[in-house]
C-alpha cells in the first residue's frame, strides 16, 4: 500500500441525504433505543412497587417542570425559525440560533436548581429506585442537552464567521430536535 496515487475524482452521485445528516439520523435512532430501554426499565420497576413514589420520597415538581418544558419547546421552535431564515439569508439566522441556545441553557440551569431542591428534600440516587431512575434518566437527558447546546454554540460561531454549511446546520438541528422532542415523553413518563 506504499504507492502514492493521485486523488481520484469523487463519483457524481447525488445522495438522498447528505452524509452528515444521514449519519446523525442513524445516531439519533440508536439514542432513541437507548432511552426506550431506560423508559421500559423504569416502567417495569415502577410496576413492581406497591406505592409510587415510594413511601417517604418526595413528589417531583410537576408544575415547575411544565414551565421548563415550555422553555425547551420554545427553543426548538426558535431553531426551526432559524432554519427558515437561514434558507433565505444565512446571516439573519444568527439571532434565532442564539435564542435557541439561551433557552436551552435556561432549561439546563433550571433543572440544576430543581435537582438541588430535590436532593435537599431527600431524593438521592440511592434513596430509592425512584431516585435512581429519576437521576439516571433525567441526568442522561441533561447530558445530551449540554452536548447539543455546545454543538449549537459551535454552529452559531461558524454562522457568525459565515462558514456554516446547510448540511452541517441540518445535522446539528436534528440532534437538537431529538433532545427537545424526547423531553416531553420523559416528562410525561417520569414526573406523573
Amino acid at each position: 500500500m506504499g504507492k502514492v496515487v493521485a486523488l481520484p475524482v469523487r463519483p457524481r452521485r447525488e445522495p438522498l441525504l447528505p452524509n452528515g445528516v444521514l449519519g446523525m439520523l442513524l445516531f439519533v435512532l440508536a439514542e432513541i433505543m437507548l432511552f426506550a430501554g431506560l423508559i421500559s426499565a423504569f416502567l417495569v420497576v415502577k410496576g413492581l412497587a406497591v406505592e409510587w413514589p415510594p413511601v417517604g420520597q418526595p413528589r417531583l415538581p410537576v408544575e415547575e417542570t411544565a414551565f421548563n418544558t415550555g422553555a425547551l419547546l420554545l427553543s426548538g421552535a426558535a431553531l426551526a425559525w432559524a432554519q427558515a431564515r437561514f434558507r433565505r439569508a444565512p446571516s439573519t439566522a444568527l439571532r434565532p440560533v442564539l435564542l435557541a441556545v439561551a433557552l436551552g441553557g435556561l432549561f439546563v440551569c433550571f433543572q440544576g436548581v430543581e435537582w438541588v431542591g430535590l436532593v435537599r428534600e431527600g431524593l438521592t440516587l440511592r434513596s430509592s429506585t425512584h431516585g435512581s431512575f429519576f437521576y439516571l434518566i433525567v441526568g442522561l437527558h441533561a447530558l445530551h442537552a449540554v452536548a447539543a447546546i455546545l454543538a449549537l454554540g459551535w454552529a452559531a460561531l461558524r454562522l457568525a464567521e459565515g462558514r456554516l454549511r446547510q448540511d452541517t446546520f441540518a445535522s446539528v438541528q436534528l440532534f437538537w430536535y431529538f433532545v427537545v422532542g424526547l423531553w416531553p415523553i420523559l416528562y410525561w413518563q417520569v414526573y406523573f
Partner: peptide, 15 residues
C-alpha cells in the same frame, strides 16, 4: 456531539 458525527462530508480539500 459535533465530534461524534461530523456534520460535513470530507470534501476533497479536507480529505
Amino acid at each position: 456531539m459535533a465530534e461524534t458525527v461530523p456534520s460535513h462530508p470530507p470534501a476533497p480539500e479536507e480529505g
